[in-house]
Design a protein around this nucleic acid. Structure first.
Length: 411
DNA sequence: ATGCGGAATA
DNA sequence: CTATTCCGCA
């Protein structure tokens, strides 16, 4: 049996998504957005910017109501919920365009001059993985990079590898601790932070954590005056060594996840399926390349963990086949599931293509949608000629450990 | 005709 | 808490 079978094996009803009463609206929308089958009722408009449109608002509302068991749901009500997102900075209205909204981005400028922009790379910080227990220590982490190689020239300006950055952000305020991995609690929000154990409260000095029940920010800044003021990023990723999985330190989580941090630069706004990987290829000469590769791997590793069910449903809802924010390491459409390690007889015994799927898929339904994107073994593999293929390291390769190269900061 | 946001409530 | 429900207003 292949993985896809496994996935559907779990007691989940025929129609895949349904009983997640804990799902939030933005998650739901993202879910719809990622499934092309809903292309007639909701669509990405400017995907790279997180902009989407409810083509058939009432239909979307019905689906929403269906999911939440609210038979009388309609766009009027759904939109009210959407409006609440304005103040929470999760979604904003794209003024002037009917039924068009946008997932909020961590758009440059606002924080471009942040003293230590670590953990908040210039543009795009993608979200995912909300700390469940304390596992967050195992996932790729942004670290304050003392003085990373500031590129000679300003290459990085458009090099938004930040697409790979995880990270996030703010509101250290709430410090409730969840004692149990209750599946009902959790539920990720668009961006969650993956902070290094130290300085949980670090980030955004210029934070926008206005939690006040005030009206504040007028959403009319929708038409952001996007200027790529992005400066080079100075971040490094630590490995997500799965080997350290044991004994997570007592946590102090409770970070309230931030809005969605999608991409932000102008140059990044091409067609939706924009893969950072391609950008990577276009910047082979970038001094940041290594770092970025590291990010890539780390990123992958994070997903691997997620795929393994270690993080529950909080994987990036963005990294999906239809989303413009999907991982560069996947080629979702070309492969069937379960071809991990296959072809014992064929000549490509050493080359694999993603996405093989987690062989140890849990019965987490929410996970199903995303889990088949990246191979859990990805971080252990080496890139091969093909941009979408990887191979296991051979003895001649220098890779010794299945971890991402780390650059330790001198704290 | 959409979109907004207060208020009460679940 | 995150919506849901209702509603007056623009």
């Amino acid at each position: 049996m292949n993985v896809s079978e496994l996935m559907h094996h779990s007691s989940s009803p025929p129609s895949q998504s349904s009983i997640d009463s804990t799902i939030t609206l933005w998650q739901f929308l993202l879910e719809l957005l990622q499934q092309e089958q809903n292309g007639d009722i909701i669509e990405w408009t400017r995907g790279a910017d997180g902009e989407f449109r409810l083509i058939d608002a009432e239909a979307v509302a019905r689906k929403w109501g269906q999911r939440k068991a609210k038979p009388h749901m309609n766009y009027d009500k759904l939109s009210r919920a959407l409006r609440y997102y304005y103040e929470k900075n999760i979604i904003k209205k794209v003024i002037g365009k009917k039924f068009v909204y946008r997932f909020v981005t961590t758009d440059t400028q606002s924080m471009s001059n942040a003293p230590s922009d670590y953990c908040t790379p210039p543009n795009m910080s993608m979200c995912f993985v909300k700390e469940e227990q304390d596992i967050k220590h195992e996932i790729p982490t942004c670290l304050p990079a003392p003085v990373p190689p500031p590129p000679p020239t300003n290459i990085s300006r458009n090099t938004d590898f930040s697409a790979l950055s995880l990270l996030g952000t703010d509101v250290p305020s709430t410090a409730h601790s969840v004692s149990t991995p209750s599946p009902t609690d959790s539920v990720c929000s668009p961006s969650s932070s993956i902070t290094s154990s130290a300085t949980p409260s670090t980030s955004s000095p210029v934070d926008e954590s206005r939690q006040s029940r005030k009206r504040s920010l007028s959403p009319n800044l929708a038409t952001s005056s996007v200027s790529s003021s992005a400066t080079s990023s100075s971040f490094t990723s630590t490995t997500s060594s799965m080997t350290t999985l044991s004994a997570p330190p007592p946590s102090k989580k409770g970070m309230k996840p931030n809005p969605l941090n999608l991409t932000g630069t102008t140059d990044f706004t091409l067609a939706p399926p924009l893969s950072p990987f391609f950008m990577l290829q276009n910047h082979q000469n970038s001094p940041l390349l290594q770092q970025q590769i590291g990010q890539l791997y780390a990123f992958t590793a994070a997903n691997a963990l997620a795929s393994a069910g270690l993080y529950g449903p909080q994987i990036s809802p963005l990294l999906t086949s239809q989303s413009p924010f999907r991982s560069p390491l996947t080629t979702p459409k070309n492969l069937g599931l379960g071809d991990i390690g296959k072809t014992p007889g064929t000549g490509d015994s050493q080359v694999f293509q993603f996405p093989p799927v987690s062989a140890f898929q849990s019965n987490n339904t929410l996970l199903n949608t995303f889990s088949n994107l990246i191979s859990p073994i990805a971080p252990f593999m080496m890139p091969s000629q093909s941009s979408t293929s990887f191979k296991f390291p051979s003895t001649s390769d220098s890779l010794k450990t299945p971890t991402v190269p780390i650059k330790m900061p001198t704290l």
